[in-house]
Amino acid sequence: MTDEQKDILIAKMIDNPASLTDAELEMIMRDDELREILEASAAIGSASAVQPDYDMTEEWRRFRPRIRRKPSLTRRLMRVAAVFLGIVVGANILVKLIDHTLAPEPQHIVAKAEQPIEKDDSPANDPEQPEQSEIAEPVAPPTKANKPGTTHIAKAEVPVDEAMELDIDEYLRIQQAQVDNEIAMLNSSVIANELEPLRQMYELMGEDDEVIEIVINNITEP
């Protein structure tokens, strides 16, 4: 390459690098003198780069939003666990609430229990004092100090709540059993679907049914 050619390339490098062809770029990279001139140009460029005095208050204000403390792994796991727990507890409460609302009305055992008890000991059976019994019945408080007749009424009121509780618990057990049953059915259908290609493959391979059964049993049995 002549000096004149090099000067032309230098002029292009400095004034209009976009006009350099790939071949010219290649020539520059292969020529030691041109590379050194490029380095000299880079050195002037570095020395000429504007280096202002930085306002550090302003620089820190610009940088500050870029730093945010990342939560530690433990904290993140605890957050996930807390969210999961919240969802489970919330869902449980919701399910109970819905079940409780939709549950059938419990039978009024109290009403049935009151009738015979009062008939046994109530002075109302006494034909001589009919007015007293009518007054005493609603007034009698459910305390231990009451007469035997009224004490029975107080005891009979408690099982109403218990009966409701028992009804809800039983209902929940039935619901749970139904859900378990559905899950089991789904599981079996999923396993059957997943194993179907395997079964087909073994059939294609010409294996006996017995062999296929053994293989599938090996996979499905725990």
């Binding site: 690098p17 770029l25 520059i28 460029g45 570095s46």
Partner: peptide, 11 residues
């Protein structure tokens, strides 16, 4: 290399 030359960066 073209961009390096344009920006007068060191090679």
């Amino acid at each position: 290399n073209r961009e390096k030359i344009r920006r007068r960066l060191t090679l």
